[in-house]
Design a protein around this nucleic acid. Structure first.
Lengths: 196, 196
DNA sequence: CAACCCATGTAATGGGTTACATGATTAC
DNA sequence: GTAATCATGTAACCCATTACATGGGTTG
């Protein structure tokens, strides 16, 4: 029973964890959840409107220092929907989109040298991602769960860097102009050897 | 210079690595690249048409045992575009969408017990993913790069399981009805402790 | 006083999935 | 003969991003 859409649950969760205006949600989306669940303003504001109409949340116009904004809170219905989602054992959506892996997949005919160049590009990207997440850490404040998910991201990218390091070390032993596919087969004929 | 769209490069790469009919591409997309780059028939076939019209690929109608199909090959222009993409140091698209992490992020007010339930759900999901990738291994045949990206997926999910195992072990030491946020703070006040 | 942040939205566009539609061939 | 696989495509829909649009408040 998929009662609500994913963006709807995100909004409910945001309210429950103290992000009560659309703007606050927008910031948290950019600063804390973006690295595992991207969401844009074009989703947040319409979602607030429809959840309001359907009675999951309740918005109150507030004037804080001359500046107007709408502050939302969960209704009983909204609280129930959120709790159901948070405790549901349903299969959670999981998706990875990695253009670097896509290039690796098609690298069969490249040279070992070219493949290693691509691997270096990927390591750089993961290093940048770590830097970015480090920068976000202070913004998590005292939210333990925000630190936890940040931690997951940091560890995940560290894992990837490590994985590519090991692969690169093995490729470094091969002649630079060898066909990448042949080199990989020579390193691990069965494709069964873990790099973790 | 983003010469072509992502799906276009996928199609070019598919042809270069021997998947020369739309159907063959569709199969490879489902069996080998789906776990890091999803793509559907609704993208493949229109893409073949437009790449054909723009002169990147060349389609020839073939009748193999009475069954008709179109077999594509790369033109010089298509080969160049593919090589540029495969060797480009440009920032590659990287995106993770993990509903489980999203739930973790909003778990602040749950009990330790509920949080551990959610963690168990996530581990199950990663275990299922590994099973699925193991099943795909024989289909990779002698494509070294296919085995490599499969290996990455397997190691990645193994990393996640391990990460959640460690987190769960720490949570097992806390009272089951403690607030999840408080428990996490007690385990790691600075949110800086790696679980990798 | 300019730049930036707070705050809220809408519209155009693009990307992608699902379902639909068709029909031949092969394996059991 | 019937189920699965080969093979190709289209259309409707959903989702999401980007850019646009507006305006008040705060900081340097």
């Amino acid at each position: 029973m998929t009662e609500l859409s994913k963006p709807a649950y995100v909004v409910l969760g945001m309210i429950a964890t103290g992000r009560r205006s659309g703007y606050a949600m927008s910031r948290t989306a950019k600063e804390a959840t973006r690295h595992f669940w991207a969401m844009s303003d074009g989703q947040i504001y319409p979602q607030l409107k429809s959840l309001s109409e359907e009675g999951y949340i309740d918005g109150e116009r507030e004037t804080q220092g001359g500046r107007e904004r709408v502050v939302y809170s969960l209704t009983a219905k909204g609280r129930d929907a959120l709790d159901d989602w948070l405790n549901s054992g349903e299969r959670a959506h999981y998706e990875l989109r990695d253009e670097g892996l896509l290039r690796l997949f098609f690298a069969e005919e490249l040279s070992v040298d070219q493949l290693r160049g691509q691997i270096e590009t990927m390591r750089r990207r993961h290093r940048r991602a770590i830097e970015h997440l480090e920068d976000l850490r202070p913004k998590a404040g005292d939210m333990a769960c925000a630190h936890l998910t940040l931690r997951y991201g940091l560890d995940l990218h560290a894992f990837s860097i490590n994985w590519y390091d090991r692969l690169d070390a093995q490729l470094a032993e091969r002649p630079p102009d060898e066909r990448a596919g042949d080199a990989l087969r020579a390193i691990d004929p069965a494709g069964a050897h873990t790099l973790a």
